[in-house]
Computed example of a mutant assay.
Amino acid sequence: MNSRHSGVTDWGLSQVPIEKNFTILDIGCGGGRTVSKLAAIVTEGKVYGLDYSTASVAFAAKTNRDWIKKGRVDIREGSVSQLPFASATFDLVVAVETHFWWQDLPGDLRELLRTLKPGGSLAIIAEVYKGANTTTARLVEKYLPKTGMKLLTPCEHRDLLVEAGYTNVQVTLETGKGWILAIGKKSFEI
């Protein structure tokens, strides 16, 4: 996971405003490489990684052991459906290659919104979306019934974020590669 998703992660993160004092959550942190990349950016902030897999949590903790020792990274086991964080904790939540596996996508997006600070952002980054004209997308779509993935079109990404309560929703595509970035913000109005 760490090397496979590095290119799409770098592409997506390059388009997300990140300040050095941000508190960030990487939801579905997998092997922890995105956590490490984010920790290098937020030199005065903190990055949390969360994954439901015990094995992924252990691997992400090993990948980020130096950041953890410095108190700049915290890796936890948990579910996107019941986040172990207080409301208004994060400036940014990042989900790389994970949202299509969530059991309750609308509810899980609302749960992430709860943990964002007013003005905070959610960035969903993926290397495949429904309708992409790439070999990967065609293979994923062919085997969807066997995988349990929920593959969305760009419009469905936008609509889902809006319906979950996000504002200023933007969807960016790298059509030649079939990549997608969907960003939504938490309103300042409470």
Score class of each variant (00 low, 15 high):
2 N>M: 09
4 R>L: 12
5 H>N: 15
6 S>F: 08
7 G>T: 11
7 G>L: 13
10 D>S: 12
14 S>L: 02
16 V>S: 11
16 V>Y: 02
17 P>T: 12
19 E>P: 00
20 K>R: 14
21 N>Y: 01
21 N>C: 00
22 F>A: 02
23 T>Y: 00
24 I>Q: 01
24 I>V: 10
25 L>I: 02
26 D>L: 04
27 I>W: 00
28 G>W: 00
28 G>K: 02
28 G>H: 02
30 G>E: 09
31 G>H: 08
32 G>T: 07
34 T>I: 06
39 A>V: 14
43 T>D: 11
43 T>Y: 00
43 T>S: 15
44 E>C: 06
46 K>A: 07
50 L>V: 10
53 S>H: 04
54 T>E: 15
56 S>R: 12
57 V>H: 04
57 V>Y: 02
57 V>W: 03
61 A>P: 00
62 K>W: 07
64 N>C: 08
64 N>S: 05
65 R>H: 10
67 W>Y: 15
68 I>F: 07
69 K>M: 09
69 K>E: 14
70 K>W: 08
72 R>L: 11
74 D>S: 12
75 I>K: 03
83 L>M: 13
84 P>Q: 07
87 S>E: 14
89 T>L: 04
93 V>A: 15
94 V>P: 11
94 V>C: 09
95 A>F: 01
95 A>E: 08
96 V>M: 11
97 E>I: 11
97 E>C: 12
98 T>F: 01
99 H>D: 12
99 H>P: 02
101 W>R: 14
103 Q>M: 05
107 G>F: 06
107 G>P: 08
108 D>P: 05
112 L>R: 06
113 L>W: 03
116 L>Y: 07
116 L>S: 11
118 P>S: 13
118 P>N: 10
119 G>P: 00
120 G>Y: 00
121 S>L: 07
122 L>C: 09
122 L>H: 11
122 L>Y: 08
124 I>V: 15
124 I>C: 10
125 I>A: 05
125 I>Y: 03
125 I>V: 15
126 A>E: 14
129 Y>F: 14
130 K>P: 07
131 G>Y: 02
131 G>E: 04
132 A>P: 04
132 A>Q: 05
135 T>K: 13
136 T>K: 13
137 A>D: 03
138 R>N: 09
138 R>Y: 03
142 K>P: 00
143 Y>L: 10
145 P>C: 11
147 T>I: 06
150 K>F: 03
150 K>A: 08
151 L>P: 02
157 H>V: 06
158 R>V: 03
160 L>G: 09
162 V>L: 14
162 V>C: 06
162 V>S: 06
164 A>W: 08
164 A>T: 13
167 T>P: 01
169 V>Q: 09
169 V>H: 03
170 Q>P: 00
170 Q>K: 15
171 V>M: 04
176 G>W: 08
178 G>K: 10
181 L>I: 11
184 G>F: 03
186 K>T: 08
187 S>M: 09
190 I>T: 12
